[in-house]
Design a binder for these strands. Sequence first.
RNA 1: UACGAUGGACGGACGGUCGCGUCCCGUUGAGAGCGGGAUGAGGAAAGUCCGAACUCCACAGGGCAGGGCGCUUCGGAAAUCGAAGGCGUUUCGGCUCCGAUUCGUCGGAGCCGGGGCGACGGAAAGUGCCACAGAAAAGAUACCGCCCGCCUAAGGCGGGUAAGGGUGAAAAGGCGAGGUAAGAGCUCACCGGUCCGGCGGUGACGCCGGACGCAGGGUAAACCCCGCCCGGAGCAAGGCCAAAUAGACGAGGAGCGCACAACCGGCUUGCCGGAUGCGCGGGGAAUGGCCCGUUCCCCUUGACUCGCGGGUAGGCCGCACGAUUUCGGCGGUGACGCCGGAACCAGAUAAAUGACCGUCCUCCCGUCACGGCGGGAGACAGAAUUCGGCUUACAGUUCAUCGUAUGAG
RNA 2: GUGGGUAUAGCUCAGCCGGUUAGAGCGUCAGGUUGUGGCCCUGAAGGCCGAGGGUUCGAGUCCCUCUACUCACC
Length: 137
Amino acid sequence: MDEVIRNPAHGRPGTRVPRETVIPPPRIRLTKADRIRKSDTFREILSDGRRWHETHMTMVYRAFSRRQVGFAVSKHTGNAVVRNRMKRRMRELFRQRQHEIGPFQIVFLARKGLDRTDFQKLRREFDRFLRGSGVMT
RNA sequence: UACGAUGGACGGACGGUCGCGUCCCGUUGAGAGCGGGAUGAGGAAAGUCCGAACUCCACAGGGCAGGGCGCUUCGGAAAUCGAAGGCGUUUCGGCUCCGAUUCGUCGGAGCCGGGGCGACGGAAAGUGCCACAGAAAAGAUACCGCCCGCCUAAGGCGGGUAAGGGUGAAAAGGCGAGGUAAGAGCUCACCGGUCCGGCGGUGACGCCGGACGCAGGGUAAACCCCGCCCGGAGCAAGGCCAAAUAGACGAGGAGCGCACAACCGGCUUGCCGGAUGCGCGGGGAAUGGCCCGUUCCCCUUGACUCGCGGGUAGGCCGCACGAUUUCGGCGGUGACGCCGGAACCAGAUAAAUGACCGUCCUCCCGUCACGGCGGGAGACAGAAUUCGGCUUACAGUUCAUCGUAUGAG
RNA sequence: GUGGGUAUAGCUCAGCCGGUUAGAGCGUCAGGUUGUGGCCCUGAAGGCCGAGGGUUCGAGUCCCUCUACUCACC
């Protein structure tokens, strides 16, 4: 199962499997329906959700009927380009491993330096959250 | 060739894997999902400093107040916008003249050419202000001086003068010569200025000639005067649909009071409950001479039910074919305009345009065999109703003009 | 997104219509008073007036451009 969920793009060059033998992996898409898009919902989660702190981001989460995610960046962290990049990187982290996560609502809060940090480091931080917080299935 | 200034252009390229928004097509009962295709940030998208389109509100007309703008002509829908020109100023180069000279040059003035800068109407319409210093800061005055006269000396007094010194940001045309007791446009040449006339130019303005010894400081990004312009708010404009909760309005309406002969039920046997009958506050109008009354209308009290207007969350429209982009031709010094052809070119809303990898390109650092190798970096910055400008940020590449240095002819 | 406001000493604020040295309170430091500390008294230090240009002889003040903070509007 683990092998299937890993994105083939993450493999080192040369280790790619020939196309014909690949079983199509489960889709790792992330559409609008999977996003939290209401101010009220954000407020509720931020007020009564549990928190998990990492160096470059904070995760706020609570149990829910299905899997939903939202991303928030404070105005103080930088200009529009920086804030957008932070959201996109957090979204990418979540997108790639979303199928390992159970029915929870999770809000990602960006912290300083998120836009400049190496993506592999962010992956390790996110992995620590997944293993430590109990949101995995 | 290098460096600097100003202005213009570009602002990483190609490919792979996994994804995102919008639109179209197919599938489908279906606008869900799935499959396919197309398309998807900028020169500043930014700041919000100007100007518009568009929308709503207000609006006879005119004036005042308030605000904005300000050389000329042209362009433009308009603009604290652009182009060309004028004038001023500054800088560089060249030439001419004057003065000084240690004969190397230095200083000043003018002309020509190139570049930069200029919120550039009016200071003889009026008012205000010009600190300190200085004699004096505006239609004035004499501190040190200079000269003349008088008083016995030191010096003082009276008068003349504004060339020299001194103060200041600024001192009443500049400079040279003549002149004089010393001086002064007192006189003269040149330069500057004011006025008048002529010529050239659409015009700002320029040129020429004449007159006037000069008729008078700065500040209007001080009040102000003159000319021109300006209604207010902004897509969170504005329109449509419309949960939940509270409340408004309309309709229905249980209800309350009194009586209780007969009827039903209970029992303490004359009371209670049901049923039944009658009634239920205030105001106005009509009828009428007036009152009672009657009729009609309005207001008030009322669980609950239904209907309904406004409207919040939320959704939809506005919302992308336009002062559009691009190619060619023509006109114009140019901004730009005209004609013809072609194109459709983002539409999100906790807000898409990304993540990772490879090859190459550019730059930096290290190494050295001078061409590779290793490492690092690729700026400023993200549409939010839409345009036209301005301003600010910006790694690197490149073009043009000018200047400086060096080299070659 | 739109429309306003503010920035002056470590902190909270004055500074008029440009003018010579930018003030006040609290705080800080030093001295005095006290057996010691506080209160109190005396004195001192501390500011390129948010940044950069411009107008002017002269700018905290006037004009322009930026920066930061802040308020209002669905």
